[in-house]
Design a protein around this nucleic acid. Structure first.
Lengths: 232, 232
DNA sequence: CGCTGCCTTGATCTTCTTCAAAACGTGTGG
DNA sequence: CCACACGTTTTGAAGAAGATCAAGGCAGCG
């Protein structure tokens, strides 16, 4: 599913391996294993022994955190070149959240000891990983603000724009979000219920801001959505 | 306010400088400046040019993220030995949140270029900083889950326990939270309003789980609070 | 004292959840 | 090719949780 060429290309394209020589990449490549997942198939579960770090080579992976009451929270959707899993060098025991393939996925994976070795070997890689982690922390803080202070409508508008930026693809319908995005997913991303998500989405569609169907959404009125977030 | 001895002691006690020799610490110490703040005084504002990294030498600092509607979100309370500000080596432009001294504070600060130099010099320090950042990311994800799925009562119970663990001090009243903690602060930490925070707090007090007064809270029934988070 | 914040408490209102049912699409097997 | 069945989405109505508005109480401090 992942060709060898693709592997090297993916690894070389990773933000934190950028700048390494072809030979160094070859070395690093040897430490990675490759693994395929079908849509809906879990990569690992929250609570599993955390032993490996993953990189998305192709497809989309969602990170979910479960709650006791069964209401899950969708933390992030990861796409080509992004990493997840036991990224830090901590001897941390368990994955704090569950990773599920949302589409057909090819992932590269490395044991955390090996990853630690790489970090020790290439200090600049460590700095890059730190930068990315710091960025994600900022994004999480931003999300905390949203959940604390904004209405469901605004959170959904914001999430749609964020998804559009990250995963969007220009189409004649508008900016199509390239993920099989159900109302449940959207609800879990915005901290609300599928029903509320559906209502808001319907309203947006009536107002001509988006087009939507089963498992997909396309943004047609970017400016209006942005205005919705700003105002009042 | 900070003696030279204290400075070296603080720096040596930092998780990410642990393991460095006395001489290395001396070198690093030279790069730090020292700065005092009165309670309520801002260290920096969201949007300011992000140029420095800070370490709390003494006192408590709160990190706040503002919203347009004036409803702020309290992201974290930092205490002795913790860092904040422009920690990454990114040439990132602005602080994303505001830092305010909550008590009398002494902070050590370093320019981010100098910090980057240190990271380049001591790879193991970088790894440590990465570990801490990854931990904070996990904590932020946990907070996202709380805000999405839990009731105000549970969020407040959880926040009190967290604060107790981090800042608590055993007293005859119980586990006293060593911060001037107003209802506003608590509301901003839990994504609710001061009124709701007050009601929940009153209920907890009636049930004998805590004792409380003006600007302070003490935990007397740890087990019951923990049960409250788990149940249902 | 009396002022200024902080805290509490009550009543009302909005938002969102919950429960329920119907409509819609999609894929499947007859 | 049609019809059925399944999962998803939509819509409605009732209810709960929390926000908002407003007033009163309680401390510390000039």
């Amino acid at each position: 599913m992942c060709t060898v060429d693709l592997r090297l290309q993916i690894l070389g394209g990773l933000p934190f391996f950028a700048g390494l020589s072809a030979q160094e990449l070859q070395e690093i490549n040897k430490l990675f294993r490759e693994q395929g997942y079908a849509p809906g198939q879990p990569v690992y579960f929250a609570g599993d022994q955390a032993t490996r770090m993953f990189v998305v080579a192709a497809g989309k992976v969602k990170l979910i955190r479960h709650t006791l009451s069964g209401k899950d929270v969708l933390l992030d959707i990861l796409t080509m070149g992004e990493f997840f899993g036991s990224l830090s060098t901590l001897p941390d025991d368990e994955y704090p959240d569950t990773a599920v393939a949302q589409t057909e996925v090819c992932a590269l994976t490395i044991g955390k000891e090996d990853f630690r070795t790489i970090l020790g070997h290439y200090p600049r890689v460590t700095v890059k990983v730190l930068d990315i982690t710091a960025e994600r922390l900022q994004a999480a803080h931003e999300m905390m603000r949203q959940l604390s202070a904004y209405s469901a409508e605004r959170r959904i508008a914001h999430t749609l724009l964020k998804l559009g930026d990250k995963l969007g693809q220009a189409q004649d319908v508008g900016l199509l979000i390239q993920v099989p995005l159900s109302r449940d997913d959207l609800a879990e991303m915005t901290g609300t219920t599928p029903e509320t998500a559906s209502r808001v989405i319907s309203q947006f569609q009536k107002d001509g801001l988006i087009q939507t169907g089963r498992q997909w959404v396309a943004i047609t009125g970017r400016e209006e959505l942005e205005a919705l977030i700003q105002d009042h």
